[in-house]
Simulated assay, not measured.
Amino acid sequence: MKTTIILLAAVLCSFTTLAQNRKADAQAIEKQVDAMVTSWNNHDHSDMKNYTTVDCDWVNIVGMWWKNRKEVEFSTQFYHDRMFKKTPMQKKGVAVRFVSPTVALVHFTSHVGSFVTPDGHQLPAADDLALLVYVKQNGKWLMTAGENVVIDLVAQKNNPVNFMPK
């Protein structure tokens, strides 16, 4: 009986420790998302090495696929120098789901201000949703992949999930 109680206590302690670690990891990931938002709002992405992996990739909102940090940093900065110079981003939400102890999927919702495209079209402010993949390397959470889309409010009204039986 004593052995069973000790074993049960050990199992409960390990679950508590895991939950605490997950909470700390989720907070660390959110700080990395905040660093990305700060880079955006400063319109300077030279600090990407602090929150991305060397082999990170990104698929942007119009389907351009940048395949390593060098391409992601160059391309992001390229557009900030030309069309996002004064466009702010506001973090609206971050949801973290752990796939393993060292891999997390992050749904990041933001509000991006209006901007003018390279061909002169004015685009209004909009909410975006990004799916980000984070990996833990040497004790630090880094983004290794991302893709973002504009949230279409008209289409959201027709989301089949809204019609699912409860």
Rank of each mutant, 00 (worst) to 15 (best):
Q77A: 06
Q137F: 01
K136C: 02
G139F: 01
S114L: 01
P160V: 01
R82Q: 15
T52C: 08
D55S: 14
N138V: 01
I61P: 02
I6W: 03
N21H: 08
N50Q: 10
I5E: 14
S39I: 00
N21R: 09
P118H: 07
W58C: 03
T16L: 11
N50C: 01
N158G: 05
N68C: 03
Q122P: 06
A145Y: 09
C56A: 03
A10C: 13
P124T: 00
V106G: 05
E30Q: 15
A95M: 13
T109H: 13
V116P: 06
T3F: 08
V154N: 12
K85P: 06
D57G: 04
A125W: 06
G139A: 00
L7H: 07
K136A: 00
A125I: 07
W141T: 03
T3R: 06
T52A: 07
F74I: 01
K23D: 09
N41W: 01
T117S: 15
Q32D: 00
R97C: 00
N60G: 08
T76S: 14
D119A: 14
K92C: 13
N60I: 00
K31D: 14
R97N: 11
V94S: 07
Q90R: 14
T87E: 04
M36I: 05
P160Q: 00
V106N: 07
A9P: 12
M164P: 00
L105H: 05
T53C: 04
V96I: 11
V96T: 11
V72W: 01
K91A: 09
K2V: 09
A125F: 04
N162V: 01
D128I: 08
L12I: 10
V149K: 09
D57Y: 11
C13Y: 10
L153M: 08
Q156M: 13
L132D: 10
R97E: 11
D34R: 09
H111W: 11
Q77E: 06
H111S: 10
K85Y: 00
P101E: 03
M164N: 04
V54M: 10
E147Q: 12
D44S: 07
K23H: 11
M83L: 14
L7R: 10
K31W: 08
K136G: 02
V161D: 08
V150Y: 10
L18I: 14
V161N: 04
A35P: 05
L123H: 10
M36Y: 10
V99K: 12
V33P: 04
T17I: 15
D127K: 07
G120Y: 08
C56I: 04
N158T: 15
S46Y: 05
N42Q: 12
V103K: 07
G139E: 02
G146V: 05
T144M: 02
V72H: 00
P165K: 14
P165H: 13
C56E: 08
K70T: 15
V59W: 04
K136T: 01
Y134I: 02
K91C: 02
L18Y: 14
D55E: 14
L153D: 10
A19S: 14
F108C: 03
V96S: 01
R22N: 06
I151H: 12
T109S: 11
Q156R: 13
L18E: 12
V96C: 00
A95D: 15
A126G: 08
M1V: 09
A104S: 08
G93L: 12
F74M: 02
S100C: 07
T16R: 03
T4H: 07
V106Y: 10
K31M: 13
